[in-house]
Amino acid sequence: MLTDNQPIEATQDRRENLKIIGAISATCAFPFSAGELYGQHEHPAAAAQAALPKPSFFSAAEMAQITRIADLIIPATDTPGALAAGVPAYIDYVCQRNEALAKTVREGLAALKGPADVATLEQLQAAQSPFFKAIKNLTADGYYTSKIGLLDELVYKGNQVLAEFPSCTIPEH
């Protein structure tokens, strides 16, 4: 029987542990092994973006309006914009599963009576239109959670294995 004041790790095989620690410091990559050993591991490269089903919720005319608005909210500049990131299909997907949101978007599109332009969006924004808020939220969500938006546009760098945490290199604090 084990005594109470023994550290838990002391009950494990010392030599085996040393072996693992050695492997970690040498390569910083250690495959999972059987049993209860935990090891460092390589992180896989970022996966592909999940395919979205072909838009089926909004009508073709509505999809044309949505596409135009998403393009105005996050246009292609020197980097790709909402359309390259597949935002219209995302908006269709989310609205199909959210009745209240779908209603706001649908009514807003109907009220536009045609394609939107910058001036219309500015008016809607100034009037704090719930439709504008809804479609902007959807566009921002769809873009900045996309692979293009997060990795290429924002240059997200996390989710990596670092051997140690880099100290701050910005001078003058």
């Binding site: 790790e9 693992i20 620690i21 970690i24 050993l37």
Partner: peptide, 20 residues
């Protein structure tokens, strides 16, 4: 590192389950 557990490798996913 301690026993069979490695030190943190700074992946930033602590609240998604630390897999090491």
């Amino acid at each position: 590192a301690r026993g069979p557990r490695p030190g943190c490798h700074f992946c930033g996913n602590c609240m998604a389950g630390c897999d090491v």
